[in-house]
Design a protein around this nucleic acid. Structure first.
Length: 686
RNA sequence: GGCGGGGUAGCUCAGGUGGUUAGAGCGUCGGAUUCAUAACCCGAAGGUCACGGGUUCAACUCCCGUCCCCGCUACCA
């Protein structure tokens, strides 16, 4: 990460991951992607660089069509709702996109279709036919999520084609017993369909050279390692089309009902957004994507590494005229109060709610999220930490130094910048240190070390506090007002430096401070210079930059989360009640007491145990997913309940005849279920 | 199970081609101070650098093994 190639770039193309338009933005998104990217581009702008910051809503894909169905509205209505909510909250929060577009925009459909077409004409795809479930009444192929049926594992009747919500198992549609189309309720039929695949494997030499060799030292370890892992495991062709009516239509004859797979069209959204910006501002957008002197950087979360480091670059490379990203600084995940953030479980701090609950405190959240950004490993957001960082750092160190300086300037010199006299060693030291900060902070930002950059920015304020305290102007004013002039002159210079250097991190605070100092906006490199404020310059009234956040406010937020946690636990209980069965259905089950004779772990699995049982009728082999909970030796001789007439099934090459019945609690622990006294093998449960 | 990332003070994190007393911020405790939103400033306590082996004159830093957390992946009848 340290050896930045010193290639000179003429311009910067910075993208932030497109938020999926099926929910609002939360602190995890901000800390991982939008805040770091925003700091980066604000810094580049202050350096006078040519930079464009691109984002937009990702609005295609099956989950949005599902959500639309559930709510009885069109997919467009869903994405409209979230697109506007997201766009508005970003704007209010101060994420300074040059353009925030959306993938349902006509310019995106055109761009994505055209890129597909170019690739198609260059022979970048392979075509393959396969059989997929089709709803004859609605005349359409069914996405995995649109097929429902009985879960082959737990018997839950409303399992989806990709996952059973009851037992959490991931499925494929052909595993479902008695599959039904969610559109018509009919039994779907298998029908042949044609799809286009991107042969990622053909591009392996390019990826090896580009990532493994030329970016070995400047990509983050998590990103580089993940890419290496994927490349070494061998890449597979990946379908780029789907049978769906929500998305970018294929620009080929005779392909009605087919759209680009969402992962293919989404990253192209960066390009179409740039095009939209270029057309609106009369700028040549293509330079930002095609000129090798443009530096392309993708800010994303770790879940997106493969798309931005492998798949999208392969697309760009196959298209032929595009540049590849110079870096992809992916962050890890942010947890909330110890638990994973979850949109569906409402376990999140939502940006639009934060903006309501803490009006005018955008910079506080920016500060906290940057200081605790998950740069090298997952991190935890807590309200207590939020409060502490505001009260003990922003307010006590940054705000306090500015306030002390301005109050003293007004008190002694009527708000006019005093003239510096003879400099002492301490004075010179302070000014020398100030000069170093633009470079120190800037270098850290350029290397995507935002936490360290922010800490350095705060060190400038610490330096100011120490200098001021040691100089003690309030003590010496009477006998030596000339000395006080020099001290405050230097303190004001430090404040002026802070007013510029804090801008990428705390843009609203920086602006406020610049207004208080009556300072015109300057370039980044001027921050270290000492003549920003001329003697005699009139400054404005001192206002507080930050206010204390009281315990009550924090308590309210914590309580809100506790309430959500409580609701989630209750919902889990009610949701897991299965559909009613009648007695006949129940009596089909042949459940018997059995004894475990042998048990061994199945090789190369985490959960599977191969178990030999005596069922009273016979001895048989059962494969059971309990290996995480028990040691094989501990099982031998144990009495268990056996579902004896479950259809045999091969698991990992082993034929399993039946199923062991276990009790499982909400923590995921398992326990045996057996008769109280030693009933003999074969005893029937009814 | 495979692959990747991580495991360093109460909390959030730095660090090192191996080399004297392992660093910072916040928190805690003590002192000093009053210009300042009980804030600032000074000082202290606090770490077997996940665990076990090995290489070495010397390892937190290199090698092997184990455990734990996160992600991808296989798998869950």
């Amino acid at each position: 990460m340290n050896n930045q190639p010193s290639k000179p770039y003429k311009r910067h193309t910075v993208t932030a991951a497109l938020p999926y338009a099926n929910g609002p933005i939360h602190v995890g998104h901000l800390a991982g992607v939008y805040v770091p990217a925003d700091i980066y581009v604000r810094y580049l702008r202050l350096k006078g660089e040519d930079v464009i910051y691109i984002c937009g809503s990702d609005e295609h894909g099956v989950p949005i069509t599902i959500k639309a169905r559930q709510e009885g509205v069109s997919p467009q209505q869903i994405v409209d709702k979230y697109h506007h909510l997201i766009k508005k909250s970003f704007k209010e929060f101060g994420i300074s996109f040059d353009v925030y577009s959306r993938t349902s925009a006509p310019v995106h459909h055109e761009t994505a279709a055209s890129i597909f077409k170019t690739m198609f004409e260059k022979g970048a795809f392979i075509e393959k036919d396969s059989e997929q479930y089709y709803d004859e009444e609605n005349k359409q192929f069914l996405a995995d999520r649109y097929i429902t049926g009985t879960c082959p594992h737990c018997g839950y009747e409303k399992a989806y084609g990709d996952q059973c919500e009851n037992c959490g198992t991931s499925l494929s549609p052909d595993e479902l017993i008695n599959p039904r189309s969610m559109l018509s309720g009919n039994k779907p039929v298998l029908k042949k369909t044609r799809h286009w695949y991107l042969p990622l494997n053909d591009h392996e030499p390019m990826l090896r050279q580009w990532i493994l060799e030329s970016h070995k030292n400047d990509w983050k370890p998590n990103v580089y390692g993940q890419c290496k892992s994927w490349i070494d495991q061998g890449l597979q062709p990946r379908a780029v089309t789907r049978d769906l009516d929500w998305g970018v239509k294929l620009p080929l004859e005779g392909t009605e009902g087919k759209v680009l797979y969402v992962w293919f069209d989404a990253p192209i959204g960066y390009i179409s957004a740039t095009r939209e910006w270029g057309e609106a501002h009369g700028k040549d957008w293509e330079k930002y994507w095609k000129d090798p002197e443009s530096k392309l950087v993708h800010f994303i979360g770790k879940d997106n590494i493969v798309f931005h480091c492998i798949i999208f670059p392969v697309m760009l490379h196959a298209e032929g005229s595009y540049i590849l990203p110079e870096n992809v600084p992916a962050n890890e995940f942010l947890n909330l109060e110890g638990d994973k953030i979850s949109t569906s479980r409402n376990w999140a701090v939502w940006l639009h709610e934060y903006l309501q609950d803490f009006p005018g405190k955008q910079d506080v959240l920016r500060y906290v999220l940057c200081a605790a950004a998950p740069e090298t490993k997952d991190n935890d957001f807590t309200w207590k930490d939020f409060q502490a960082r505001n009260n003990n750092e922003l307010l006590a160190i940054f705000g306090n130094f500015v306030n002390r300086t301005l109050v003293l300037t007004h008190k002694y010199f009527d708000g006019r910048v005093p003239k510096a006299g003879q400099l002492t060693d301490a004075d010179r030291e302070a000014l020398e240190s100030l000069k170093l900060f633009p470079d120190i902070i800037g270098k850290n930002i350029e290397q995507y070390r935002f936490r360290e950059a922010l800490a350095q920015m705060m060190n400038l304020a610490r330096l100011g506090n120490r200098y001021l305290t040691e100089a003690e102007p309030w003590k010496i004013y009477k006998e030596n007002p000339g000395r006080v002039q020099t001290v405050l002159n230097i303190c004001l210079k430090l404040c002026a430096g802070m007013a510029l250097l804090s801008e990428p991190f705390l843009p609203n605070t920086a602006k406020k401070l610049q207004q208080m100092l009556n300072l015109k906006a300057r370039a980044w490199n001027e921050a270290g210079q000492t003549e920003l404020l001329a003697p005699g310059h009139q400054i404005n009234e001192a206002e507080l930059l930050f206010e204390k956040i009281e315990d009550a406010q924090i308590k309210a937020q914590v309580n809100k989360l506790l309430e959500i946690r409580k609701n989630n636990n209750q919902e889990q209980v009610t949701e897991s009640v299965k559909a009613p069965v009648n007695f006949d259905e129940f009596s089909k089950m042949d459940i018997r007491v059995a004894t475990i004779l042998e048990a061994e772990k199945v090789a190369k699995t985490k959960k599977l145990m191969k178990i030999r049982v005596d069922s009273g009728l016979d001895q048989r082999t059962v494969v059971s997913g309990i290996a995480e909970h028990f040691e094989p030796e501990a099982l031998i001789g144990k009495k268990v309940l056996l579902l004896a007439n479950l259809e045999p099934r091969k698991i990992k090459g082993i034929e399993s005849h039946g199923m062991l019945l276990m009790a499982g609690n909400k923590d995921g622990a398992l326990a045996f279920v057996i008769p109280e006294e030693g009933f003999e093998n074969g005893s029937v449960i009814s």
